[in-house]
């Protein structure tokens, strides 16, 4: 059975049908892509899956559990993590604190333990520092652990956002244009990074991307959106040849 299942998900803003009848089945350890021209509704799909918007219709299930009506923080708790198209780091916080916030859900010792500095709180802080430190090491950000996140170079910020999403301990990772603004070298490293993230943590990944090089190379299957509707779905080579996709991107051929 598939890990993440979306069925008939629709959302309108006033008269604009932003997403209509979106469907997706993402298997465990799957690496799928979501593409489409600008304004096709890709980010809206992410916002619907993660609870930022509530769908008008349709259901979203993760590992058999219904996510459709949950608040975003609960959805994160069920194991759906994301990054944002326009980076949304906690700019004033240090790099490592960005990760620690994302471990929020796995920290059983709350405010009373913190105020009294109980042993549980101390152990939790130690475990957090260790775990987040190791995550930073993996993402090559260890040397910048105590810098403010907003001072990082752009590429590092993108990577930190992925690391932060992973720190929540997800089953499925949604990446919203991870390669945007990166140079070819960074894009190449990003591809390796996404693959190793998937393999190490056993995650399923769904990514929105405009860079066709990245998408065609990484993704096992691709869903194409246009005007809020799924117009194609399949392996990269099949989608590439699909006349509807070509039409959406380049316009109808002159007959």
């Amino acid at each position: 059975m598939s890990l993440l299942i979306a069925q008939g998900v629709s959302k309108s803003f006033g008269g604009l049908k932003a997403v209509q009848g979106f469907a997706l089945e993402l298997p465990e350890r799957g690496l799928y892509g979501l593409i489409g021209p600008n304004g096709a509704g890709k980010t809206t799909v992410f916002n619907l899956l993660t609870g930022v918007y509530r769908p008008d219709e349709g259901t979203v299930k993760l590992a058999g559990r219904e996510l459709t009506r949950l608040r975003p923080n609960r959805i994160a708790g069920e194991g759906l993590a994301r990054t944002f198209q326009n980076i949304r780091l906690f700019g004033e916080l240090s790099v490592i604190d960005n990760l620690k916030v994302a471990c929020h859900l796995r920290c059983p010792h709350g405010m009373p333990a913190a105020v009294l500095r109980l042993a549980g709180h101390r152990a939790q802080e130690r475990a957090l520092a260790e775990r987040c430190g190791r995550l930073l090491e993996m993402f090559g950000l260890a040397s910048r652990a105590h810098e403010q996140a907003r001072n990082l170079p752009y590429g590092d910020q993108r990577r930190l956002e992925i690391a932060r999403a992973i720190a929540t301990g997800p089953k499925v990772l949604l990446l919203d244009e991870p390669a945007a603004g990166m140079n070819p070298q960074e894009k190449k490293e990003l591809r390796t990074l996404i693959r190793s993230v998937r393999d190490t943590f056993g995650l399923a990944v769904l990514l929105i991307e405009h860079d066709m090089g990245v998408v065609m190379d990484l993704c096992e299957r691709i869903t194409v959106l246009d005007y809020g509707k799924v117009i194609a779905h399949g392996p990269p080579e099949q989608v590439q040849k699909d006349p509807k996709v070509i039409e959406a991107y380049l316009g109808a051929p002159a007959a």
């Binding site: 944002f84 916030v101 929020h104 859900l105």
Partner: peptide, 28 residues
């Protein structure tokens, strides 16, 4: 002690970016 704990970092994350905080599992 609150500022340097899980709850305090959650508070700061709300200040920095409420949508991102929620997406990271913080009950804002």
């Amino acid at each position: 002690r609150i500022k340097t704990s899980t709850s305090g970092r959650a508070m700061l994350s709300v200040r920095e970016d409420e949508i991102a905080a929620e997406a990271m599992g913080v009950n804002t």
